[in-house]
């Protein structure tokens, strides 16, 4: 009997200890799961913040890109429109020049062009080329420029002259077309300023 009660006490003790152990383990498990839950809240919030912040950055980047490109596109379209208008102005001006009267003022202009050409080439011995409209104007001025001869060939231009030295090594283009071409950037600026640019 005596040994039975000792056995029972031992069994009870083991059961008690096991119960305590299990309870303690359960408590520990509960605590660690609560901790894990609490921590996961923090890391979840951090992850959430990171995703939101990256999303914001990406959205800002996209916004910048869209606005930047839209600004540029509208500016470029404006540039094209202005250029088209400038070209129209040029076309009209060229038409006016083509139809201009070959009067005394025009003769003075050709005379100054001839002087300028001789000065630039550095010799009075020149051959002059011009278009069919200006041929008579140049012919009438030849007496003033000894050494200058008028070529029989006609050139295609709005007006003005092309000269070359008699040995053919130097040429000077003093046509209205060439002058227009050289001054085009400045004229474009003046025209554009009329459009508020």
């Amino acid at each position: 009997m005596g040994s039975d009660s000792a056995l029972e006490r031992t069994v009870e003790k083991i059961i008690h200890n096991t119960e305590e152990q299990i309870l303690s383990n359960l408590k520990q498990a509960l605590k660690s799961s609560q901790d894990a839950l609490a921590n996961s809240h923090v890391s979840l919030e951090q992850e959430y913040d990171r995703i939101i912040s990256e999303g914001k950055k990406e959205a800002e980047k996209l916004e910048k890109q869209i606005i930047g490109n839209a600004d540029l596109d509208s500016r470029n379209k404006q540039l094209v429109l202005i250029e088209e208008s400038i070209e129209k102005v040029f076309d009209k001006a060229i038409k006016k020049i083509q139809d201009a009267d070959r009067n005394s003022d025009y003769s003075k202009l050709i005379s100054s062009m001839l002087e300028e050409s001789i000065r630039t080439i550095g010799t009075p011995d020149i051959i002059i080329q011009t278009n069919s409209k200006d041929k008579s104007v140049v012919q009438s001025l030849l007496s003033k420029f000894s050494g200058a001869t008028l070529s029989n060939d006609v050139i295609d231009c709005l007006g003005g002259i092309k000269v070359q030295s008699k040995d053919g090594t130097m040429k000077f283009d003093n046509t209205i077309d060439a002058r227009l071409e050289r001054l085009k950037p400045l004229i474009r600026k003046d025209i554009a300023s009329k459009f508020g640019r």
Binding site: E116, T120, I121, G168, T169, M170, K171, F172, D173, N174, A178, R179, R182, L183, P185, L186
Partner: peptide, 12 residues
């Protein structure tokens, strides 16, 4: 910038 251009030389 002036309207006056330059001389063209053809002796290379």
């Amino acid at each position: 910038m002036s309207a006056q251009g330059g001389v063209q030389y053809s002796k290379i």
